[in-house]
Computed example of a mutant assay.
Amino acid sequence: MYINFTCPPLPHLIVGGISLFRRGDLHERRVLDHTFDLIFVFSGALYMEEDGRKYTIEPGQYLILPPGRLHKGYKACTSDTTFSWVHFYTTGDYFYSENSITHSDPKMNKTKYYKKDVFYISLPQSGKIDDSLHEMLKNYMDSISQVKIDKYHNEKLFYSSTKSQIEYQQLFLKILTIFCDLQEHEKEKELTDEIFDYLSLHYQDAFNLNQLAAQYSFHPAHIIRSVKKKYGLSPLQLLLSIRIQKAMKLLTEERHSVGEIASLVGFADSAYFCKQFKKITSLTPLQYRNQQRSLHSTD
């Protein structure tokens, strides 16, 4: 499930804290009328129930508990558990959905100088944060923590502000950005997988970046950036790689000439095909065919 905030206004930080639970400790039962509770576990495991739905939050995982819903620990911690939490709220509207809300800004024009269009912050209610982001997230959460709940010493400690409210809100928005990027990365992964499948199916067709971008309703620059991030190649380079893989298989079968294979895998020019083949495999098509023939003859 996704929690979607209509902005402006932006959600705002109330307070952050850290809790140290012992084995056998149980999260309290409560309903927060006006507060979201974001929990991120660093060690151990926290067993939470929200309106009858049970979650096991393990290291690197998080859960957002919305206001107005009963939540509680449904099971005591089975080991020592450390987790950070953030209480936040919004004075604006929010709603729930099964899928994230996709927002794309229309092109800027002179009528938009003085008023911000509505946009959405779409947060997955639960998930896992990439290991590479744990240290950054911990630093942000430590920086906004003003409460420490220590079950070892049966203490609840409160700390004075060490930053301005603007700094606290900036840190909170950085935390939200990490969670927002989580679903952006998932969407980006889905996009690149779909593009790979599309190119694998249409490898014989002429390449057209604008047509590919229109197919998936993204700007060409976003298509290039996403594919390069996943595969280390531009969309055209990825297509060439797919074509060469198809050509390698055909060369092994020995049913077609090099010129015929070039045409079959989408190259209009056999000389260009040979150039790209050698660039990717370090062999000419004939050298590759002879190599494969030699390997199979020794089997």
Rank of each mutant, 00 (worst) to 15 (best):
S126G: 10
H103M: 15
R30T: 14
P66I: 08
D269N: 07
S282A: 11
H103N: 14
L13C: 02
S164Y: 06
N109L: 09
L209G: 05
V258C: 01
K72H: 10
I244A: 03
K75D: 09
Q169W: 08
S257T: 01
G68R: 04
I39Q: 09
R23T: 14
I3S: 02
I195N: 07
L38A: 11
L191C: 09
K275R: 15
D269F: 00
T91L: 15
Q287T: 02
M48G: 06
L63V: 11
L209W: 05
I244M: 02
Q165A: 08
V227I: 05
Y113P: 08
Q276V: 04
A247W: 00
K229D: 12
L20G: 04
I242Q: 06
M141I: 03
I149R: 11
T284C: 02
F95I: 04
Y120Q: 04
D299N: 13
K138C: 07
E167Q: 10
E184W: 09
A213L: 03
H87M: 11
T162Y: 13
N154W: 13
R225I: 05
Y55Q: 06
T192H: 02
V265N: 00
F207H: 03
Y55C: 05
Y114L: 15
E135Y: 12
V41D: 02
L70W: 11
F179R: 02
P59R: 07
F207Q: 06
N99Y: 12
E184N: 13
Q61P: 10
R69W: 05
C7M: 11
R53K: 13
V118E: 12
A221P: 10
F218P: 04
T281G: 07
I149A: 09
F5Y: 10
Y203N: 03
F267C: 00
I144V: 10
H103F: 15
